[in-house]
Amino acid sequence: MNLILMILFGLFLYVFTKIMLKEPILPWKEKKEVSNKPSKFKKKKSGKQNIEMDQDPDLFKNLFDDVQSISHHMIRFKSNKFVMIAEVEPVNYFLLSDGEQEAIDAKFENWLATINYSVQFYLQNRYVDLSEPIADMKRYMEKEDDLPYNAREYGQSLIEDLESWQVQIPRYETKRFIAFPFQVNTNDITAEDDEEFEEKVIDKAFSELYRRYNTAKNSLNNARIKVDLLTNEGIIDVLYHAFNRRKAIKNKFKEVKNQEMLALYLTADQDEERIELVKEMIDREFSGETQNQEAI
């Protein structure tokens, strides 16, 4: 019996050793040679496919290659297509009674039945930002000198809880928008020059889109749904949060606006010497371009 156990133990040790060494268990089988040559199924790398993994795609350029400008509360495309965007503040539907819910449904259905053009609904999830309410609370506490001690302590603890609540777990809020697209048919517009043509195109697009916006606003206001038209900055704000979802918390769009980073020209105070120097540079460049055109 002991001899059988020793034989079984030796056999087990032999099999375990062969497996660990990745050798064939049966001695009459040859060991497979591992080739260092690349497989024929492996794709050859070309210069065009050699892209760094940490390189961000040029998403903004690809999506907005057809955008011409954002002006007059509209997004204008190169094909003379215009889009007007309005923000929607929804009603707390599930806290209403059955009759009130049916009235809201009827108003919304009537609005959809009256329109014969396309509208697009856009939902955007943003990180909850409590910086402005917290700043207002701090400003109020600093302003009120006669605030009781218990109230000041409660306010300070509430501010700390709100700041930790926002930092610990990312929380989101949903912004709702309605986009009204409109394609201007330039063949129906007659003008004497390009400037008049541009004015007529913009006026036609704005009047039509504003009419559609007013129709939605009046119909949805009856359903207790508030609709507000977005300005140029509002449209840029929506795009800013769409492409800077994580950075929008730290680098707020409001701060970008306050620092005048959206201005086409510098509006800070400058001394007279610098102003004169800039004027001389502009005159020099303009005179150089004029001479080049005359030479051509």
Score class of each variant (00 low, 15 high):
M137F: 10
R139T: 12
R139C: 08
E142T: 07
P148G: 01
Y149H: 07
Y149E: 13
E153D: 08
Y154D: 08
G155I: 05
G155T: 02
S157G: 00
S157I: 01
D161C: 07
W165I: 06
Q166K: 13
Q166L: 07
V167M: 09
R171A: 10
R171D: 10
R171E: 14
E173D: 12
T174E: 15
K175P: 01
F180Q: 05
F182R: 02
Q183C: 03
V184P: 09
D188N: 03
E192R: 13
E195A: 10
E195V: 14
E196A: 11
E196F: 05
F197A: 07
F197R: 13
E198Y: 07
E198M: 09
E199K: 05
E199L: 05
E199N: 05
I202L: 01
K204T: 13
S207T: 14
E208S: 12
L209K: 04
L209Q: 05
Y210W: 12
Y210P: 00
Y213R: 00
N214M: 12
N214S: 08
A216Y: 04
K217H: 00
S219R: 08
S219K: 13
L220G: 00
L220N: 00
N222G: 14
N222L: 15
A223M: 06
A223S: 11
D228I: 00
L229V: 14
L229K: 15
L230Y: 07
E233W: 09
